[in-house]
Design a protein around this nucleic acid. Structure first.
Length: 282
DNA sequence: GACGGAGTAACTGGTAGAGA
DNA sequence: TCTCTACCAGTTACTCCGTC
């Protein structure tokens, strides 16, 4: 017999939670079945739970309540379960951002995953990554006011302070015995939907800033170009690989640059402008 | 083989969006 | 504003399987 019933706050995907809960119930309560759950929850459909677990159905607002009641979740667990369902079923970046932030407010989540907030902040605020890249640059000063004055567009010194705290919390920067801020080697996981939502925000911000850079900088200070081409699926994959290889080359060049005068942002975007044109019809 | 419980495929009805 | 269409949450009806 498995000891602990799956704990909702541990999960970042409600379908995984339901799947493991079903496994637990089947092991611990012989009378449990999808049909049994439907009766408990007030659904006429005997397999509704399975359809939800298999991602063939989403949960409506009303069915979230029915599920919470059947699962005997308390008030806080029900609220978290609702936020989780909303996050997992969100279709727009704005909704994902909203529900990610909702999830990060739960005390149980903060206690279980103390670094989750910092991970989210690291990617959702563009300047955190920039500040980390500034650290090894020649002439860098561990002074929030000075750092704020160097960033384009400018941010406040309070935001810089928060950013540095995030880097320290995640141990991707540290203070040496002389009081200097130095880069540290550490990895940040981005696999779950909360962190992924922050990464999406990061990409959106950087693409937006690229658009703003056209007016913000003179032509000799930036490099902006774009090309529209017709491609087969095969050639698309080839170009995708070329971009990945080029990105590695850029990182290698940057790695070997001892001067590091400025921090630059290099974006790559390759995306379709049409559906498949030749669908086989004449 | 009758019965009941399990899972699943096919169906229904409501709704939102697109186009006339 | 009306009609058509597509999508999706939830239902119905079917088959399968174990038990008596």
């Amino acid at each position: 017999m498995q000891e602990n019933k799956p704990y909702v706050f541990v999960y970042i995907n409600y379908r995984d939670y339901l799947k493991e809960l079903v496994a637990w119930y089947k092991q611990n309560r012989p009378q449990f079945s999808y049909r049994f759950f439907s009766r408990e929850a007030g659904f006429k459909s005997p397999n509704f739970l399975k359809l939800v677990i298999d991602a063939e159905r989403n949960l409506s607002s009303e069915s979230i309540d029915k599920f919470s009641a059947a699962l005997k979740l308390n008030k806080e667990e029900s609220a978290f379960f609702r936020a989780l369902v909303n996050l997992n079923q969100a279709t727009t970046a704005a909704d994902k951002k909203y529900y990610s932030e909702e999830i990060l407010k739960f005390k149980k989540v903060i206690k279980l995953y103390p670094l989750k907030r910092a991970q989210y902040d690291y990617y959702s605020k563009w300047y955190n990554i920039t500040i980390r890249e500034m650290i090894p640059a020649r002439g860098f000063k561990n002074d929030p006011k000075w750092i704020a004055s160097k960033l384009i567009p400018p941010i406040t010194s309070t935001e810089v302070e928060k950013g540095i705290n995030t880097l320290l919390e995640l141990e991707i920067a540290k203070v040496d015995n002389k009081g200097n801020l130095i880069q540290a080697e550490s990895t940040i996981t981005t696999g779950d939907q909360v962190s992924s939502s922050a990464v999406v925000q990061y990409h959106q911000t950087m693409i937006k800033m690229a658009a703003e850079s056209i007016e913000r900088f003179r032509g000799n200070e930036r490099e902006i170009s774009s090309t529209t081409v017709a491609l087969s699926s095969e050639k698309f994959l080839q170009i995708q690989q070329m971009i990945r290889d080029f990105r590695k080359q850029v990182l290698a060049v940057a790695e070997g640059d001892g001067a590091r005068e400025k921090i630059y942002q290099l974006n790559f975007q390759l995306y379709p402008l049409t559906e498949i044109i030749d669908d086989g019809e004449k």
